[in-house]
Design a protein around this nucleic acid. Sequence first.
DNA 1: TTGTACGCGTTATCAC
DNA 2: GTGATAACGCGTACAA
Lengths: 333, 333
Amino acid sequence: MERSSSLVEVARRAKVSISTVSRTINQTGKISQETQEHVRRVMRELGYKPNRVARRLRAGGKCHLLGLIIPNIQNPFFADLARGVEDVAFRNNYAVLLCNYDEDADKERFYLDVMQQESVDGIILPPIHEQDPAVWRVVRSGMPVVCVDRSLADASIDRVEIDNRRGAFDAVNHLIQRGHRRIGVISGPADSSTGRERLAGCRQAQEQAGLALTADLIRYGDYKQESGRSLAADLLALPEPPTALFVSNNLMTIGAIEAIHALRLRIPEQVALVGFDDLPLAAVFNPPLTVVRQPAYDAGRSAAELLFQRLETPARPPTSLVLLPELIVRRSS
Amino acid sequence: MERSSSLVEVARRAKVSISTVSRTINQTGKISQETQEHVRRVMRELGYKPNRVARRLRAGGKCHLLGLIIPNIQNPFFADLARGVEDVAFRNNYAVLLCNYDEDADKERFYLDVMQQESVDGIILPPIHEQDPAVWRVVRSGMPVVCVDRSLADASIDRVEIDNRRGAFDAVNHLIQRGHRRIGVISGPADSSTGRERLAGCRQAQEQAGLALTADLIRYGDYKQESGRSLAADLLALPEPPTALFVSNNLMTIGAIEAIHALRLRIPEQVALVGFDDLPLAAVFNPPLTVVRQPAYDAGRSAAELLFQRLETPARPPTSLVLLPELIVRRSS
DNA sequence: TTGTACGCGTTATCAC
DNA sequence: GTGATAACGCGTACAA
């Protein structure tokens, strides 16, 4: 492989020392105007690009690389989030090392190791759960970490959350306003913070309306399509079936629609439906889907901005940001 | 930041030289069993992890990092593809540096530079177009490159393609079988290989049926939702509008549906619709969408496997793989 | 079988 | 202002 020219090469061609070249690049120290211009010209001629790897090895800081570890890139929510992170990074001339841990603790640990070994400037991630020892280890090592979407059970670290309770509250409250009294809930895993918070939002809305959210109307899924399908089928087969369904994430919502179609039920006349997370086709669906839209892109953007702020001012107090989801009322409810 | 211990640290604690430690890690050279075990124990105690950055700086090879540059992570097709790449990489203990170039040549160039400066082991990407000078430069520099989905106008490099012509042919042929004579085509960019091939497939199907694909029924989009919407609106406003639409990718298909709904046209009675690429909601859509499903995950997987084969045997002749798409007939056609 | 010393491309700390 | 030089952590040729 044709070796890309190094600092030494440039220095030789420009007949100056490597320190002069380095200082020209980094604007550090005093260099005369003419020398600078001369060096710059030579760099251009040689098509010189500083070697990021060497830079990182030396410094540790300012490596212009940032790590993002997400549960599942195939979930549109995380794709949007990743995009938000990436756009901010690109604007700052940073690249993003993006990894996918597939809700698997081992994979998460592997990628956390990789990030540290790559000495990235900082890491953004939704921890797999609230006391994630692997993440804690990284935090303690001094690596800047920003939690997004999910978080650690400790306020001392930067975080961007979405108000899950509020989103679920709005959704269920909306269904109640429309006159529904028996509302089936397909929740996320009981041990995930998002799952718990969304369920709490449902409860709150029901209690406020003087309704009881009885256990027989709650089902716990795993945020995947198939569980949405089977649990919805389950609820709709009840002796006294719910007249409305609230589903806690996008993939399970798709599953719920499958189940509803299989029973040849009409939306919203026979079953009203509100899902958490927007979907690419939701707005043109028939009927258009009422959803709680999470500001995924903004969450990613904010997380990246928080990280850059911390890199700039390492001593600043931890910031906690809460973004509001938005109930988009369309026609399925 | 608490410095993660280095080779020197391990060597000191184990009372051996750094080469012994290095050789123990890399299984290179002869080390006595007992020394190895001793060293390993010390490494575990210290929680030692080799520094990937230093490793890359040294060798250039075996850096266990692989670059993936894709047009748009928010497109489910590329998300699936990325997932395929990542799974194979993970199995080989490789991390993936994933970047998003947003169909923007400048961004693509930026990320290609990053990849080289990071000295990744190899790069997987769909080039932005067939004579992509930035990609060519990288290839000439000796960096292993695998093209996936799209390719360069030269057979001398590894590639994984999907039979776009065949997919488009099947789709349009299907519409013709259903009796359609005026079929509107929303193509991809004219300078992308996928765009051209899919268009060629349309042409072939029409010619075989003795139909003329007149220019007024073809529109060229940019694979994004908004272009699908405006171009579909455009076609449907024709004095003699098409009775069926073939749309060349998923995001533009969503846009086309928007346009169809805006005109209050019924699918498939008033406009039949076939899209390229499957979508999460397509199967439960009303009516369920007829699509050409591309094996995106497999394409990513194959590309990564090809790359690993090349890393193992740099001199092997370039391989070209063609994967078959599948027409899934549902109810929109 | 094991140890020593050098170089990878940078940046930072000296000295001039 | 500018130049020489020591790290950064690792792999490896060469010496022992």
